[in-house]
């Protein structure tokens, strides 16, 4: 009781102290808000600055080639009287390697995620989860070296000739899997990319799978569904948007990957149609040619960079949108 019997004057002093303290809190809050806003605005400024400087750098190439840049395969920086530079080869290579990587990584990643959330014994869950996440931590140059020294020769000696022989003479597939087998190829790059994006697909799918309310699954099991039916009819439909968002994030990574791809793709601008032939991607082309390029050649490389930027931007924006939609659905 004694605690509450304070005199009026000391109460007034305490009030004043509290006002001062609150005022200083407010000032601190405002400062904090100002600093964080500044940090956030910086991101926008940097983003805008990148777009502007890319556009300025790409302008000579845009005005020289226009829309033809997107449909021209020829890449001849030394052509006379003027360089002929078309982005079709690197754009094709970028898309084809990313798509093949997704075709491989998505089923594998979803399989791992289903196993980890639905089927895996508790004691195995952590080791596998950690191992997959560690894959994401390996620097891309390591993947490049491995692809160059180990995967490439192995593919060229075993897998690729087998495909070439199996599909020889078959229409369409015969030209997709056409020889000669090459250590450095679109296929090699796609495989390396698939391994690199696997952790993204797995981690995001696992996270969204675990948002499925247990009551739904239990109800399905109660009706006598098999595990496959539960995954197929309950888990995947409930999380579809999130899974697609995760796949898009992985696609964004695959589109922009540079170092590992430059090592294993063979840096050839020609489109042969076969996935066992060397090719190039936008980022690999920039990495290998930029230092020695000048004038229009350099501008064309910057234009390629701008295209990649736009492409990746839309892919990531779509991914964000889908993940946001999923969150809203959960909120309801």
């Amino acid at each position: 009781m004694a605690d509450f019997s304070v005199s009026d004057s000391s109460a007034a002093a305490a009030d004043a102290a509290r006002v001062r303290a609150l005022a200083s809190f407010k000032a601190g809050d405002r400062l904090f808000q100002g600093l964080t806003t500044l940090a956030a605005v910086t991101v926008l400024l940097v983003l805008g600055g990148i777009i502007i400087s890319l556009s300025i750098g790409a302008w000579p190439a845009i005005s020289a080639f226009g829309l033809d840049f997107l449909t021209t395969q020829r890449w001849a920086p030394n052509a006379r009287p003027q360089a002929v530079l078309g982005g079709l080869g690197p754009i094709y290579g970028t898309l084809i390697t990313s798509v093949i990587a997704l075709i491989i990584a998505v089923p594998a990643g979803l399989g791992i995620a289903v196993f980890l959330t639905e089927l895996c014994p508790q004691w195995l869950r952590r080791p596998i989860g950690v191992a997959v996440e560690l894959l994401a931590g390996i620097p891309s140059i390591i993947y490049g070296i491995w692809g160059f020294f180990v995967l490439g020769p192995w593919l060229a000696d075993t897998i690729e000739p087998a495909f070439v022989n199996a599909f020889e003479g078959v229409p369409i597939l015969g030209s997709i899997f056409d020889g000669p087998a090459s250590n450095l190829s679109l296929f090699n790059a796609s495989l390396v990319l698939a391994i690199m994006i696997l952790p993204f697909v797995t981690a995001i799918s696992r996270d969204v799978f675990s948002t499925v309310p247990p009551v739904l699954k239990e109800a399905a099991y109660g009706l006598g569904c098999t595990k496959w039916e539960v995954v197929r009819r309950v888990v995947v439909p409930f999380t579809r948007v999130g899974v697609i968002g995760g796949i898009m994030l992985a696609l964004g990574r695959a589109l922009g990957e540079t170092m590992a791809v430059t090592f294993v793709i063979g840096n050839s601008f020609r489109i042969s149609g076969s996935i066992f032939a060397p090719g190039t991607t936008i980022s690999a082309a920039i990495a290998s040619e930029f230092a020695e390029s000048r004038d229009l050649h350099q501008s064309a490389l910057i234009l390629l960079g701008l295209l990649l930027f736009v492409l990746t931007f839309f892919v990531l924006a779509a991914a964000r949108l889908m993940l946001m939609r999923l969150e809203r659905k959960q909120g309801v």
């Binding site: 030394n78 250590n183 840096n267 050839s268 020609r270 050649h297």
Partner: peptide, 13 residues
């Protein structure tokens, strides 16, 4: 030239 339009081959840096 120092960079040409290569008809075939794989490129290395």
């Amino acid at each position: 030239d120092s960079a040409v339009e290569w008809p075939v081959g794989v490129g290395a840096k």
